[in-house]
């Protein structure tokens, strides 16, 4: 496949960082090729004339679905934590936070 790909390796890495996805080198290679092909398939979509067309963000007819400000029972703490990989003293526990810079 000598044709130039739509996405560079750096594009894939940048997007993977945004999505917090750890990828192996092999996955990066696959995905660079796959996503480039998919983006090519979008070329005709981009050409559809949509001037003045409103975007569809919702399909249902209703608006302003609201609930009253009423307190309802929470889960017992044990159930909140039941599925957690790691907990301590009623908290979820995660490794330390290092700020990216």
């Amino acid at each position: 496949m000598s044709q130039e790909l739509r996405l560079t390796r750096e594009d894939v890495e940048r997007v993977a960082r945004l999505a917090h996805l750890g990828l192996t080198d092999e996955e990066k290679e696959h995905l660079q090729r796959d996503l480039s092909l998919i983006l090519e398939a979008f070329d005709r979509l981009r050409e559809v004339l949509t001037e003045g067309v409103e975007p569809t963000t919702h399909l249902v007819p209703q608006e302003s679905v609201l609930r009253p400000d009423t307190v309802r029972p929470s889960l017992p703490q044990g159930q909140v934590l039941a599925n957690a990989p790691e907990t301590r003293d009623g908290f979820f526990r995660v490794p330390r936070i290092l700020e990216e810079s």
Partner: peptide, 11 residues
């Protein structure tokens, strides 16, 4: 937060 061993989360 920065540099501490672990972080605990309360939702």
């Amino acid at each position: 937060i920065i540099g501490s061993e672990a972080t605990h989360v309360d939702y």
